[in-house]
């Protein structure tokens, strides 16, 4: 049985005091304990940004890589060791801006990983520029007269591109977010959670502004219907839904065919390459009736 203490480490946290990322960190720890994962079974992958520091603040395996590149690294981790619980923690700038192309193609690949986007609608670590999700017209450090670019609807993109688990969480509701994370991590296939994470330092609106607009998706909603999910993903403004927006059985997992044909074990446990096969493939490059034989012992 894992406990919250298993995930505790003594690394100094660099977020602003009162940052909503603390709540997301808490939700992660609770979710992993509820799932009874041990830290060595978990691998967190991140890029750059405030969200991307999260893997440092809970005990687990982690790869804190380059800005925007967490998804390809996590895809590699999943291919090499499908037994690990691989989770990407990223932000709106990291995942939708710098790493936008990887987001699109990881949706198509469908590795069995979970991606959590701490979406604060702003570039916080570089002090307040617009992000791909900043609403039209809001002013930012680099857009003092207001953002002119259409904000990205990443939830709709995910639904359109075959992602089987699409959800939105809210950093202001740890229990609800924890439940979403448990569902997302348990899901077999690529699962994606966008988390509304108001920035208390650079953001336009205080926490309560979001609280007033957010509502939980009710039991009567059918998350398996693609059309209504798309409609739900486009709800924004005075009413913002949180919860599971789309969930269907996953299509074939990335590298599934290879895994079925070769082995389900982590690649580091694969047997050394068979020399005979290499000799056989090499011999295809030489006429077969030769008198000369490659010298080898095994």
């Amino acid at each position: 049985m894992s406990t919250i203490d298993d995930y505790q480490n003594n690394v100094e946290i660099q977020w602003c005091p009162g940052c909503t990322n603390f709540s997301i960190l808490q939700a992660f720890k609770k979710a992993l304990v509820e799932l009874d994962r041990m830290p060595q079974e978990v691998c967190m992958v991140s890029g750059i940004g405030q969200a991307a520091k999260l893997p440092h603040y809970l005990k687990c395996n982690f790869f804190n890589g380059l800005h925007g590149r967490a998804l390809p690294v996590a895809t590699g981790v999943h291919v090499a060791n499908p037994r690990l619980t691989t989770i990407v923690v990223t932000g709106d700038g990291d995942c939708y801006g710098e790493g936008g192309n990887h987001f699109l193609h990881t949706l198509r690949r469908n590795p069995d990983i979970t991606v959590v986007v701490n979406n604060n609608e702003i570039y916080a670590l570089t002090k307040g520029q617009a992000s791909p999700t900043t609403p039209l017209g809001e002013s930012r450090t680099l857009q003092p007269k207001g953002v002119q670019l259409t904000p990205l609807n990443a939830l709709a993109i995910a639904i359109l591109h075959g992602c089987g688990f699409v959800a939105r969480g809210f950093a202001g509701d740890i229990e609800h977010l924890k439940n979403l994370l448990v569902e997302a991590i348990s899901y077999r296939g690529f699962s994606y959670v966008d988390v509304i994470q108001p920035c208390i330092t650079w953001g336009t609106h205080p926490m309560n502004w979001y609280r007033d607009r957010i509502y939980k998706i009710g039991d009567s909603y059918d998350p398996t219907n693609r059309e209504s999910a798309l409609e739900k993903s486009m709800e924004w403004g005075n009413k913002v839904p949180i919860g599971i927006i789309y969930k269907v059985a996953s299509s074939e997992i990335f590298a599934g065919r290879f895994r079925k044909a070769v082995s389900t074990r982590p690649m580091f446990e694969f047997q050394p390459p068979n020399r005979k096969i290499i000799f056989k493939l090499l011999s295809a490059f030489r006429a077969s009736d030769g008198s000369h034989k490659e010298a080898h012992t095994d």
């Binding site: 790869f63 890589g65 690294v73 996590a74 895809t75 981790v77 291919v79 982590p266």
Partner: peptide, 8 residues
């Protein structure tokens, strides 16, 4: 790099 980090 993700694969290599994982030991392969």
């Amino acid at each position: 790099l993700g694969v290599s980090y994982s030991g392969a």
